Amino acid sequence: MCSKIDKTDAEWQAELTPEQYRVCRQKGTEPAFTGQYYAFKEQGVYRCGCCGEPLFRSDEKYDSGSGWPSFWQPIAPDALATHEDASHGMQRTEVVCRACGAHLGHVFPDGPRPTGLRYCINSVSLAFEPGGSGAPEPERTPL
């Protein structure tokens, strides 16, 4: 993983589309079933849409029925950071890119085996790299 990326709000706003900025820097959410990757089936690596860090592999993506791309584990244990999120009258766990702090979505304890986790991620916070490896093979959670 690369070192921490520190940019001003103005720099992020100049680099991102208005929708990327709203979701990734202002903790917004794209509407369910509208993002380009929710039903996407290509093989490759999903990178942070803000800084390009590898976050998820297509092998760990599954159809959760939620309307957002869902993954059962990140590409590497240190790719993401989590924070408690009590916004909107709910108790959730926010997922951010560890390198740049971009809001990606939330993680829930209702995913498939082997982890039981569902990383529910906004498409606009991702950039897809076809066939890319992204990072060394992660340690797999045993069944």
Results as ranks from 00 to 15, higher is better:
C48K: 05
T29S: 14
Y38P: 03
R113Y: 02
T34R: 05
E94F: 14
P114E: 05
L16Y: 13
G105F: 07
S70E: 02
P69V: 08
A79K: 09
E19S: 06
E94S: 15
E129M: 05
P18S: 13
V107R: 02
C50W: 03
A10G: 09
L16T: 12
M1W: 04
D63L: 03
V124Y: 02
C50V: 10
L143T: 07
L16A: 10
C51K: 03
C97K: 05
A79T: 13
L16E: 01
R22L: 08
L143Q: 12
Q91V: 12
A102R: 04
M90D: 06
A10E: 15
L143W: 09
V124N: 01
P138D: 04
Y46A: 08
L104I: 13
K41C: 03
G52E: 10
P18T: 13
Y62I: 00
I75A: 14
A102Y: 12
D59R: 03
Q26W: 06
T17Y: 13
K27P: 11
S125F: 03
F40L: 05
I121N: 00
T8E: 15
F40Q: 10
W12M: 09
E60F: 11
V107I: 08
S3F: 05
S125A: 14
L143E: 15
V124C: 02
I121G: 00
D6C: 11
P69M: 02
K7M: 14
T8N: 12
V45A: 11
H106K: 12
A10L: 13
R22S: 11
D6M: 10
R92I: 11
E15F: 01
E11S: 05
A10H: 12
I121S: 00
